[in-house]
Amino acid sequence: MKNKAINKLFKMLFLFGVSLAILDFSIGFALNYMTVNQKDGNYHKLINCIENKELDLVILGNSRAERQFIPSIISMETGLSAYNLGYGGRDLNFVDALTSVIVSRNPPKYLMVEFQLSNFRMPINQDRMSFLNPFYYRYPELQPFLNRGEISRKLAFSSSLFQFNSSLWDIVSPYFQKVELEQGYRPLYGKLKMNKPKQFKEEESEEEVEIMLPEIQVVFENIVAETAKNNIKLIVVLSPQFNKEHNENKFAMEKQYLNQFEDIIIWDYSQDSRFTEVPILFNDIRHLNHHGSQIFTKLIAERIKNELLN
């Protein structure tokens, strides 16, 4: 009786395991096919940029990179081929992960990172990295970022389904929802609605802490080291934010820290009154709209031409 129960149990568990393995492989195969064959969308953008051998300049960062830098304007003004690999909601660790892949495959001449000084105070958010999970095997440089050196995660990545965990929407949506992307740039067309421009408080993210986090400094130094090693010029751009009440001293430590890196270029537009006081250039207080981005990118392109190419 006891043996019969054990046999039945193991038979069921074996069948369940085999069925799961077959489905894991089949669904994983189908999702991988859909990922690499996207005609547009976020994954298409990633593959298109990383596997492009002719890029001179790659832009990285969060939504402010993705929404404010227009590669076609940079190309037109400077003659450099450019691509915007910014992704909304991502942090510096994500930028570091992409930098690792880019520099070891098709290193461009310039890497432009949109950046805010407050980034140094925001802890690494690991769940933002899951977007890259489908590329765990395609781009092995990502593996230390995704498995975090943990055995449990290394084991989990042997499952095809786990590689596509939380990625379903990014894989499927471009097949029925057209995503307007222009060399990775994703425009915003809204206008900041406001009768009287008001002063906005310096927004603090819920994750922001009082001090510069050593872990973020390590991430930043890693980006600096990787670009330097591959002779890539690193340009850090602090883009404008609408009419922000600014405490000059708040980020003094970050400024001092950044200034110690002689090999990187820092372009600070965070207080540029050509933008910060003009609501029609903004979609919301954090992001320029398409019109604002055109003007901003032109300024960046001119600066590239004047300070880097001449």
Binding site: L20, L23, D24, I27, Q126, D127, A156, S159, L161, F162, F164, N165, S166, L168
Partner: peptide, 10 residues
């Protein structure tokens, strides 16, 4: 399968 595809594994 849904757990593996849509679960949050942090």
């Amino acid at each position: 399968i849904v757990i593996m595809l849509l679960g949050v594994f942090d």
